[in-house]
Amino acid sequence: MKIDVQHLAKLSRLHISEEQVAKFEMQMQEILGMVDNLPELSSEDCLIDPQNPMTCRPDIPQNNYKRDDILKNAPQVQAGCVVVPKVIE
């Protein structure tokens, strides 16, 4: 199996240098190789667990945060908003 490290890097918004690509690919291959060697598993549904159902939150509004609390860690703020490079879509 081929792992396209550069494609994954693009998907995860990372730069990976060419020398790292080979290293990362090899390391990932080893880990994934272990999965490839797994024995056959029953195909029952493993993604939901109805035995452990969720309790939901009542629809009651409350908020104790001011705008400054929310924005104080932002690298760039203007007019009460977080600033990002111009987005065109």
């Binding site: 792992i3 490290v5 994954l8 890097a9 998907l11 995860s12 918004r13 990372l14 730069h15 990976i16 790292q20 990362f24 390391q27 990932m28 880990i31 994934l32």
Partner: peptide
């Protein structure tokens, strides 16, 4: 890309790539 590449170390990057894959 630059924020994440400069902000994370190699171990974190490796796991992000594996998880993305």
């Amino acid at each position: 890309e630059n924020t994440r590449s400069e902000g994370f170390g190699d171990e974190v990057k490796r796991r992000i790539l594996l998880g993305t894959f």
